[in-house]
Design a protein around this nucleic acid. Structure first.
Lengths: 248, 248
DNA sequence: CGCCTTATGTGTGGTAACGCACAGAGAGCG
DNA sequence: CGCTCTCTGTGCGTTACCACACATAAGGCG
């Protein structure tokens, strides 16, 4: 995607009716999101909400021991900072940029103002939050019962779906491991199997998906559940401009 | 507690200002919640929201394989049926009564009507939902990294906190196991250790907590995080009548 | 080009939790 | 009171994943 940046690359922003969008447009600020940037840490007060366009953000929790686990990811289908409108303004978890790219950010006060107008924006944000809850629920169950390989497939697919139109992830095994909360070696081994099967190919810091359908057969049900729920919740949404589909 | 039932036994209902409470009071219906009753199943449309008083409800997900895992519990601090106001009206997970007791139920239409007035009820429900999200997040991380014994301690404490003033849970190992998504034997073993240490005592279907502090030292951080976040989110709530404390 | 950092491959041993199988013990019920 | 169902204790072997320890290789950078 070498196309110019536009807020419409984010599905939530793209779904706002003209009047609501106009109120916000002037305040949306395009910001680069470098890999590893921390959008918020436990206890820190949020200043902005982020609507990713090409970036992907990982919501995760870091334990006292230092171990961590992703609880959900946010891409161009959503927004980072739901605690602003849900209340509390902060959470015990963190948000870190997992794939570099861009996002539009909006000052927290303006977001809350718009939310409190109880218009479509509120409705959209709540629906999206419901989808996020499904993702977290599914992650909890998945962590309990599914193998590393299954989880890796799920995670690759979810990440792939959030990339504009590429099939290559800029990502080390180490990084994937910290997302799934497992050892790096575990990822290397699982990825090795997937590569052997011809579903992916990788080299130092790059993972290319060759055969989506292969990953889908090896992924656990969790991937499908999350995707289906997101598309169900946003099925009646209309977009101001043509955006191919909300969910692939 | 042989005291008569009252909606005030539920913290959300108790926190409504008189005007809002009056609008709903006539429509609140006290219902018994027998152990094992299913409040909703994946895909089923919700007809009511439930505000537990003495009952405890488990939100959990059942996998295709039949394995299951609890993602959060709801007691008198909350409400079952957030998807009504979040949107969608249903979820991929289920809600089952984990401890028998009572709840006040409210027809879904009335709940949504009250939510849409954007008064304190909306604010309360959203804050509670944020606390629920924290619980789910924590469960996801906990499932990944903590031992059965740690999780059992966490779970016992969370359940204990939701019981009016008892220290005995009516609960088989089997049931606890299905909540945590582990084998029954795993619970028997962990419970055996806790009994040996003198922290709990149990017999066929009953678990009595003897030494809370012991459980607290063996529990993972997850218990404290969830409790702290709930109390933080509801710290500025005022109750119509004297209710000792929101969070012990 | 060569160096050095960082990513990946591999091995060894340890352990928590699993699946299965069955014995024994409570507790409700006729 | 005795029966029977269900709950709990215990003992296998198995497995997935962990922790640690290196070897090797890739790729950026001077």
């Amino acid at each position: 995607m070498s196309s110019p940046h536009s807020p419409n690359q984010n599905y939530l922003l793209a779904a706002l009716p003209p009047a609501e969008f106009e109120r916000l447009a002037a305040h949306l600020e395009l910001v680069p999101m470098p890999l590893g940037e921390i959008l918020y840490e436990p206890g820190g007060q949020l200043q902005h909400a982020y609507f990713p366009t090409t970036a992907i953000v990982s919501l995760h929790y870091v334990m006292e021991s230092g171990a961590s686990a992703e609880t959900a990811g946010v891409g161009n289908e959503g927004v980072v900072g739901i605690s602003l409108f849900m209340g509390g303004g902060t959470t015990p978890s963190s948000a870190v940029v997992q794939t570099a790219g861009h996002a539009y950010r909006l000052e927290s006060g303006l977001l809350m103002q718009e939310f409190n107008r109880a218009g479509l924006m509120q409705r959209l944000l709540l629906r999206y939050t419901q989808a996020l809850i499904t993702q977290m629920t599914q992650t909890a169950a998945c962590n309990r019962h599914h193998s590393i390989e299954q989880q890796l497939c799920r995670w690759l697919l979810l990440t792939l779906d959030r990339l504009p139109s590429s099939d290559e992830l800029i990502m080390t095994h180490e990084l994937v491991a910290s997302m799934l909360g497992v050892r790096r070696e575990g990822i290397s081994e699982a990825a090795g199997k997937l590569q052997h099967a011809g579903f992916i190919r990788y080299r130092r810091g790059h993972i290319t998906v060759l055969e989506r359908s292969g990953l889908e057969t090896r992924a656990c049900e969790c991937y499908a559940v999350v995707k289906k729920e997101l598309s169900r919740l946003l099925s009646d949404v209309r977009y101001r401009q043509d955006i191919t589909t909300v969910v692939r």
